[in-house]
Simulated scan of single mutants.
Amino acid sequence: MKLPRSEQETIVIFDVEVGKWHIDTTYPTHIRKYAELLGEIEDKTEDRLAGWISDEFSGSFMVKKRKTLTKERRQQIGEQLRKAREL
């Protein structure tokens, strides 16, 4: 059963006592993204994934939407980089 978009969510909690991150998500993109990071999976269905991030995971993870830059903004950033490299 597919959840309506308004009910899809991702909850990420760090448990200090355990020293691990816990993820519980019903957002399909995050289910696919975090399935490989989880060591101990509590619940995995087509519509939900819940579990603890593996001890072997030594990096950090981020949940944010990528910025889309306009053509003008990309040109501004390129100019700033060229000036900085000249110094």
Rank of each mutant, 00 (worst) to 15 (best):
M1K: 14
L3I: 13
L3Q: 07
R5P: 03
R5T: 12
R5V: 13
S6E: 11
S6F: 12
S6P: 02
Q8R: 10
Q8D: 03
E9D: 07
E9S: 14
I11S: 08
I11E: 11
I13R: 05
F14Q: 09
V16L: 14
V18I: 12
V18E: 10
K20F: 12
W21Y: 11
I23T: 04
D24Q: 02
D24N: 13
T26S: 11
Y27W: 05
Y27N: 10
T29R: 14
T29M: 11
T29I: 15
H30Q: 06
H30A: 11
K33V: 08
E36M: 06
L37K: 07
G39A: 03
G39V: 00
E40Q: 14
D43W: 08
D43S: 07
K44A: 04
T45V: 05
R48V: 00
L49I: 03
L49F: 01
G51R: 00
G51P: 00
G51F: 01
W52T: 02
I53V: 15
S54H: 03
S54C: 00
D55F: 09
D55K: 13
E56N: 15
S58Q: 15
S58R: 14
G59E: 02
G59N: 06
S60G: 08
S60R: 15
F61A: 02
F61K: 04
M62S: 07
V63R: 01
K65P: 01
K65C: 10
R66Q: 15
R66I: 09
K67H: 07
K67S: 09
K67W: 09
T68G: 08
T70I: 07
T70Q: 03
K71Y: 04
R73S: 05
E79W: 07
E79I: 15
Q80T: 14
L81W: 08
R82N: 09
A84Y: 10
E86M: 09
E86K: 14
E86G: 10
L87E: 09
